[in-house]
Design a protein around this nucleic acid. Structure first.
Lengths: 149, 149
DNA sequence: AAGTGACATGAGAATGGTTCTCATTGTTAG
DNA sequence: CTAACAATGAGAACCATTCTCATGTCACTT
């Protein structure tokens, strides 16, 4: 998959308001993330980009994109850094995580279920004095191929 | 809080079936985790234990306890390792995470809501060919004191 | 009670992913 | 065109975590 035409300008806007620009390296990173079925590690990004972006630049591109709100950093259960496009680009979704091989894929939840979840989340957070900014749901399990093995 | 009387024997059993034993260092780690209001980092554990367990031993104790299923390793949004007691000891719960200071506290969800969540989780996982082993819900927000600041 | 073997510990070295430094290159604005 | 500034790339630095190995401790046998 190549860089979706609708995404470019929106990312550019974000970076512009962050006082920076959408350079080739950053474009490559966003492009790779669009092509991925879920969050990826920096090492995987490096592989996907076939070393086109040196590690130091890759990490910096990730940091810049994160600061601009274009990508988000999460972690798999084993602690590996995972990068993915932010919700406003990738849509709200959750993760299915394989405990065995570490694979992470995006999944969506029915809208009404999502609404129900938000209701109790807001309640619980309010009780604790938290202002909610988001939520994550990770479904942990064993993927098809790991179950076979 | 000191080591709950009911916990000791159960942990001992677990470690025994893992072919190892509940040594003083490991006891200290479990004790500290019981005293914490949520998951803690190895560094925090070290502080809580006031250096009583050298870092290398601390990490090893954590690894052993994890292997025996006594503790679980997760991560805060910034990627820091967080250790907590496993569900069979701490009960099923979820996390309220402060995006600003990194604080993580345990929260419980109404039983019927939890049931509803499991239903769709099982569905989604089945579609993807995953065998579900658990799930995590992190509510992200800003805690009371960080909001003031 | 002493011996024995296996497991646990502690100090420090090694590792490796991530971040930092700095000289260089590229880009934008006047 | 050129001055100012941002981005890049190579490698060094950093630091949390893991590994190594010599030593200490425990449980079990006789």
């Amino acid at each position: 998959m190549s860089l979706n035409a609708a995404v470019g300008p929106r990312v550019t806007d974000r970076l512009t308001s962050a006082g920076t620009r959408f350079t080739p390296s950053r474009r490559r990173v966003v492009d790779a993330l669009l092509a991925a079925p879920g969050p990826v590690t920096p090492a995987e990004l490096d592989r996907m980009l076939d070393g086109a972006v040196p590690l130091s630049s890759l990490y910096r591109a990730i940091a810049m994109l994160e600061e601009a709100g274009v990508v988000t950093r999460t972690h798999d259960p084993a602690g590996v850094i995972l990068i993915e496009l932010s919700e406003w680009l990738a849509g709200h979704h959750h993760h299915l995580v394989c405990r065995s091989c570490g694979e992470v894929i995006d999944v969506e939840i029915p809208h009404d279920t999502e609404m129900g979840i938000r209701t109790f989340i807001d309640q619980i957070a309010a009780e604790a004095g938290y202002a909610v900014t988001g939520h994550r749901i990770d479904i942990e399990g064993t993927c098809r191929s790991c179950r076979r093995a």
